[in-house]
Design a protein around this nucleic acid. Structure first.
Lengths: 158, 158
DNA sequence: GAAAATAGTTCGTTTTGCGAACTACTGTCA
DNA sequence: TGACAGTAGTTCGCAAAACGAACTATTTTC
């Protein structure tokens, strides 16, 4: 057993590189489907139903003026609709049109497909572990898979 | 929105979300340090010495005209210098100025720091797992973690 | 009911990114 | 050698993206 303390690619650098790669895949797919990456991202965020501008601002981390522009252009292209919120007449909800829905789904699918290809032969077990680890990072708290679930029985694969 | 039983995010979605998160960290840090994310990225790519435009185009996946613009602005800000290549008088190499080097290092450090924080208490073993898996994805070949950090030669030979 | 807060928009600016057309070199082969 | 094809970058015009400050319209709060 060699010491596994091999600093292959530092963890954080790996994350950065991965982000870069994913972004490129996203850009490539969007381009092919005649969407901008930002539009594709927006569409993907709306699949579960209409969302208010403020919430979008939070999840996209954009200035509200930037979002206005993004939504404007998406609306002009018929991908998205603004509906006035009935309870709060200042607010509005952004929802997908039929076309927007299709375009979003298509983009999401293709991105997933390509990432699958890139992940290649990464074994299922490792995929799951990675997904869980990422889940932990995303949720802002440590992944606790060891509390029984997925990671149990993981026999030192490294 | 209680953190109950999280239905593990599909692998590819996890990647996308992670990428998004990293990108936001990158944007945040760049902003604070008075750089654009693209400039920061550029600086980070130059830490190991000057690089030609063509190679940058390849790694950044930008059109050459876009890169020209990016380098122009970075040069105008004194972060970067163009030096004419002596062997090929068409080509030039982009190198960091002192300021560029400092700015790049600072940005890289801070991004890493924050990602570390986000990764929080993710156990070392999982970090390594993620790093190895990512390494595999990046290198376009299957990760062979059982081969013990065979990932060493992940650097693109080109 | 006036003042403060919130939800979005508008406006002007910079940055980013594209593609087509261009300049200037380098390499090829006849 | 010398035409000419290819390569390395730049220029130009354009659209999208992102910002911040100032604005409108509507709650909320006191």
């Amino acid at each position: 057993m060699v010491a596994t303390k091999e600093p292959v690619l530092p963890f954080t650098d790996a994350l950065v590189r991965l982000a870069h790669l994913v972004q490129q895949v996203f850009a490539e797919v969007s381009r092919e489907q005649d969407l901008t990456p930002q539009q594709a991202q927006l569409l993907c965020l709306l699949v579960d139903g209409p969302v208010g501008m403020s919430e979008l601002v939070r999840t996209l981390q954009l200035e509200k003026s930037s979002l206005t522009g993004l939504v404007d252009r998406a609306e002009k292209r018929g991908l998205v609709v603004r509906t006035r919120d009935s309870r709060d007449r200042r607010a509005c909800r952004i929802g997908l049109t039929g076309e927007g829905e299709r375009a979003g789904a298509r983009a999401h699918e293709e991105v997933s497909r390509r990432l699958e290809v890139l992940a290649g032969e990464l074994p299922d077990r490792q995929r799951e572990l990675v997904a869980v680890a990422i889940g932990g990072i995303l949720s802002g708290r440590p992944a606790r898979p060891s509390r029984g679930t997925a990671l149990a029985g993981e026999r030192d694969p490294l």
